[in-house]
Amino acid sequence: MMTTLAQAGFPAAMHQITLAHYLFISGAMFMLGLIGFLTRRNLIIMFLCTELMFQAAGLALVAFSRFHMNMTGQSFVIFIVTVAAAEAAMALALVVLLFRKRESLDAAEWQEMKG
């Protein structure tokens, strides 16, 4: 059984794993998501990459929450999940529509906003 927060105390639970460790992981994940978003051309994968970035942000928030012993960080992750779910629903519906139109998921297909 995991020790509870109260019993573990701070910073004993983290031992020598500091906040910086988590933040680095979070940053690296975010960066990978960003690179994916920039390089991949499949719309679905691009959305997956945004989810990856959400994950990274969530990880950072939870780490901060633990660091500060404040639950609001975790509450924010709930909202992130909510928004991610909403975004996934809308975005995927749009992707389906777009796919119906062009029979392709290439993001470069849509350039109507060109200046």
Binding site: M2, Y22, E51, S65, V81, A88, L92
Partner: peptide, 23 residues
């Protein structure tokens, strides 16, 4: 590890269980 059990399970349920299925 960060003793955020609720978030961990919520993440698995919502993300892995729901959103990814949609994907």
């Amino acid at each position: 590890i960060l003793s955020a059990e609720f978030m961990a399970f919520a993440l698995v349920i919502v993300y892995a269980g729901a959103i990814l299925i949609t994907y």
